[in-house]
Write a protein that binds this DNA or RNA. Structure first.
Length: 424
RNA sequence: GGAGGGAUGGCCGAGAGGCUUAAGGCGGCGGUCUUGAAAACCGCUGAAGGUUCACGCCUUCCGUGGGUUCAAAUCCUACUCCCUCCGCCA
């Protein structure tokens, strides 16, 4: 949610930023709802004030023994007026809130203006494309040849967009999870959390997945719970409806979770391999930051995520997403795109965003300043990294002429010391 | 799944239809005293919204939603969560 005061006092800024994102919105209706809302609040509060005073009088006069019948009648009438005024207010308020919940965040001034991913800006590149004296193959072929990824049987068990990992494939996945968790907790100062993998509607609304993107989520039958599409949801909501101490900030969490997405808008896209699955593993970084420092924290978060690929020694580049391509809740997002020689493309492996106060306002995550005043803090998160896509990157980058996979050095301690898949 | 008990401010805890504007305590902040500190004493100390240039004023909030009543923290009702016991279970 963006600041309601901004809507009231500077609707022009809101309109302009919606335009930059390419989003259409009836701002006139929003402004008039807000005006109506405030008018009704004043009206019903005035009536309530009258009611309270009269009620007090009755209580006092009753003490002296008199029964003021016409005062009670008056109060009765007031009560009716109040409830009808409040009913009207409820309707207006609901309409106003429904609208504010589907307005996307305002992009930060440093975000390039553009329509889609073609307007994103590559801001840095690390390493180089490796060269091979053979034709590198995509991970789905390699995985099936080595019998470490089984897509056919997963489709039999469940359906499309699921994978059965086997033997060293399963071990590689598990090793990457542990390697990333260890790196972020030991070297980058994050606290590990293991949250619930399903959350209620309130949490989903708090981080911005709801109400707008319900078609992307798996919802449980008979319960208003959803499978998480990212650890961002349960982890950011750790502090919903709480007031933190200023000196505690920044708070940094890392969480491993599986993620569940319907991929409703991606029919026929990325149907082969691990790229786009209904269930995938991810290690996620989440920060609760002081508003004055959140953009520094974003740069740090990006470096923490990048560090995973540096330690694995895999070439990547970083893109700054343009206004037309950033997510609904984000003010600024960097994507890390990893090089996949088997497919000859760069593929997003991490997305690092600053949400500023957008999520904090929805989820009521605040901090108390040294002067005692309370303010919304800023939330940030980024993949550190998506595990399936990292498996993809390791397989494709470290494949050998003989059809093996060399295990990156940092992973060897996690993989019982083996140096290649399969081992000798 | 069954049977009981509970949810009140940062924390503990009273309050059982209108003298609640929620007692009292702890903690925190400020002050008096002191070379300094402690102790003692005095004062202040929740959140959201509306309104105001501002001081302030007003409204709402006692787990959540409905209801009864002129009037609800207090009565009724449904739900949520926590505790105790029983059953089942990784």
């Amino acid at each position: 949610m963006i600041d309601p005061k901004l809507i009231r006092e500077n609707i022009g800024i809101v309109e302009e930023s919606l335009k930059k994102r390419g989003a259409a919105f009836d701002t006139g209706r929003l402004v008039s709802l807000d005006e109506k809302r405030r008018k009704l609040i004043q009206e019903s509060e005035k009536l309530k004030n009258e009611k309270n005073a009269l009620s007090d009088e009755i209580a006092k006069s009753r003490k002296t023994g008199a029964t003021p019948a016409e005062k009670i009648e008056h109060l009765k009438a007031l009560g009716k007026k109040i409830s009808s005024s409040e009913e009207e207010l409820k309707v207006i308020e609901k309409g106003w809130e429904d609208m504010t919940l589907v307005i996307p965040n305002l992009p930060h001034e440093s975000v390039p203006i553009g329509n889609g991913d073609e307007d994103n800006k590559v801001v840095k590149t690390w390493g180089e494309k490796p060269s091979y004296d053979f034709e590198p193959i995509p991970h789905w072929d390699l995985g099936e040849k080595l019998d470490i990824l089984d897509f056919k049987r997963a489709a039999k068990i469940t359906g499309s967009r699921f994978t059965l990992y086997k033997s060293y494939g399963a071990l590689l996945e598990r090793s990457l999870i542990n390697f990333m968790l260890d790196l972020h907790t030991r070297e980058h100062g994050y606290t590990e959390v293991l949250p619930p993998f399903m959350v209620n509607r309130e949490s989903m609304t708090g981080t911005g997945q709801l109400p707008k993107f319900e078609e992307e989520l798996f919802r449980l039958e008979g319960l208003d719970y959803f499978l998480i599409p990212t650890a961002e949801v349960p982890v950011t909501n750790i502090y919903s409806n709480e007031i933190l101490k200023e000196e505690e900030l920044p708070i940094k969490f890392v969480a491993y979770t599986p993620c569940f997405r319907k991929e409703a808008g991606a029919h026929g896209k990325d149907t082969r391999g691990l790229t786009r699955q209904h269930q995938f593993n991810k290690v996620e970084l989440v920060k609760f930051a002081h508003p004055d420092n959140s953009y520094n924290e974003l740069e740090g978060l990006l470096l923490d995520a990048e560090d995973v690929l540096k330690k694995l020694n895999i070439h990547y580049r970083v893109s700054l997403l343009c206004t037309g391509d950033i997510g609904f809740s984000s003010a600024k997002t960097y994507d890390i795109e990893v090089w996949l020689p088997g497919q000859n493309i760069y593929r997003e492996i991490s997305s690092c965003s600053n949400f500023e106060s957008f999520q904090a306002r929805r989820a009521k995550i605040r901090y108390r300043k040294s002067n005692g005043k309370i303010d919304l803090l800023h939330t940030l998160n980024g993949s550190g990294l998506a595990i399936g896509r990292t498996v993809m990157a390791v397989m494709e980058n470290f494949q050998t002429k003989d059809g093996f996979i060399t295990v990156p050095e940092v992973l060897r301690p996690y993989m019982h010391g083996i140096t290649r898949i399969p081992p000798d």
